[in-house]
Design a binder for these strands. Structure first.
Ligand code: FES
Ligand code: FES
Lengths: 144, 144
DNA sequence: TTTATTTAAGATAAATTTGTCCGAAATAAG
DNA sequence: CTTATTTCGGACAAATTTATCTTAAATAAA
């Protein structure tokens, strides 16, 4: 469904959000531990999330990653997935045709667009805030 | 969403079904042409679909692939996807946790299981027969 | 029986994704 | 200013997926 990079990226972003709500920056090392992800690979993903403007990064001692508090509510799961995996999952054909539209549909088109739209809506309607809150109050978990 | 192998496998199976409904065997070469897939890779996929019992293969002149006509109606998209991509898409955690269940859910669990179940139902309710019929009457297409 | 045709099987190779390493750049603090 | 800390950036490596090649096995027909 999502790439490994995207899975790590989502988990990392949620963790950063939890800490940011407490006005605490968090280091790459800590994130990778909490998310159970390879440190150096996580660094790459965080780098790209920073370039996409989803998270902020700061170098040096006391540095680390954070998310502007006002953004936590407006950032949606959709934004994170889109930043890392692109838009193929939202607009691409389920059977890999170069173009998906109803004028020359693949055999699963009619059935697939519903699922795809469903997923898209879910991601667009899910805010980072609610994900972070669920984690913060111990309702959900990042490792297992 | 699905692997390349699965995309090719689905399209190939649908094409074989169309031909089988006309009691015609079809060769690897023809399948790969119609499906726009690499020949040798397609061979591997068909081989595994044959081992899974979804399609039948026959060697030698007049050989090729076919599907028992009585099966075309009972084979579901779910069976093809499961045979090629396994069951991770049906039971796996959206964020890659080793185990997905409600006792220790990841942050997206509640929202993800709906989508996943939705997809599963769609695949279980979609028969090879209806996919093949749509293609046969020119309503849908395998290439673009 | 010989030949031509077609899939099976295993080894190999290319491409992509995932993951690592290391030096550079920034920056906070002594 | 110097040092310690932390992210950045690029090169590199491993693993997985996708794709190819070659030889064998089966089998239909001449
Ligand atoms: S054309 Fe395949 S999903 Fe739309
Ligand atoms: S635990 Fe992640 S989807 Fe169920």
């Amino acid at each position: 469904m999502f790439s490994k990079a995207c899975e790590y990226g989502i988990k990392a972003t949620i963790y950063i959000a939890v800490k940011s709500m407490r006005h605490t920056r968090v280091s790459l090392k800590e994130i990778a531990e909490e998310v159970n992800s390879p440190v150096a690979f996580t660094a790459k993903i965080l780098q790209s999330l920073a370039k996409s403007g989803i998270i902020d990064s700061h170098k040096g001692p006391t540095g680390g990653f954070e998310i502007e508090e006002s953004k936590i509510d407006t950032i949606k799961l959709h934004d994170i997935v889109h930043a890392i995996d692109g838009d193929n999952i939202f607009v691409g054909c389920g059977l890999g045709l170069k173009q998906c539209d109803a004028t020359q549909p693949c055999p699963v088109h009619d059935k697939f667009v519903g699922i795809r739209e469903n997923l898209k809506m879910m991601l667009q309607n899910t805010s980072l805030y609610e994900l972070a809150t669920g984690l913060d109050i111990g309702l959900t978990h990042l490792k297992r």
